[in-house]
């Protein structure tokens, strides 16, 4: 399972693709079961130059019967910094946030290459 993520141009907020638009909560993200649908969304996202920056697909795993990003980096993006738990998306709390916090997958982020170039 995969989701499509990016940062919003105007404020840098981490956003997720949902049916051609962008949402701030990972829990609201559209999930792609088949590769082609995800890639089509990614291609479409890349044309949204004035809305978001550098979209890419991320792999997901199951956590507490919800989905969570597989890589640690992506979970941090979906939550916020671990040194200020009241900053970022995690401040909202709730079961969806806790599922992300408890997820334990480990893999290099699929967005890593782009991120390193991004600065």
């Amino acid at each position: 399972m995969r989701a499509l993520t990016a940062n919003r141009l105007t404020d840098g907020e981490v956003v997720f693709w949902k049916a051609g638009a962008w949402v701030e909560r990972f829990a609201d993200a559209e999930l792609f079961e088949d590769a082609e649908a995800g890639e089509a969304a990614e291609a479409s996202a890349k044309t949204q130059q004035t809305v978001i920056v550098e979209p890419y697909l991320i792999d997901l795993i199951e956590s507490e019967s919800l989905w969570a990003p597989l890589s640690y980096r992506e979970r941090l993006r979906a939550l916020g910094p671990t040194n200020h738990l009241h900053h970022g998306k995690q401040a909202e709390g709730g079961a969806a946030i806790e599922a992300l916090q408890h997820a334990s997958g480990a893999a290099r982020s699929s967005g890593r290459v782009n991120l390193i170039k991004r600065k």
Binding site: L9, G12, R77, G80, P81, G88, R118
Partner: peptide, 20 residues
Amino acid sequence: EDQFKMIRLMNGLYLQLHAY
């Protein structure tokens, strides 16, 4: 974004994980 990246970096503005 490619062209702008050079410009914003010359002004100290990075895009990081959660925000600029």
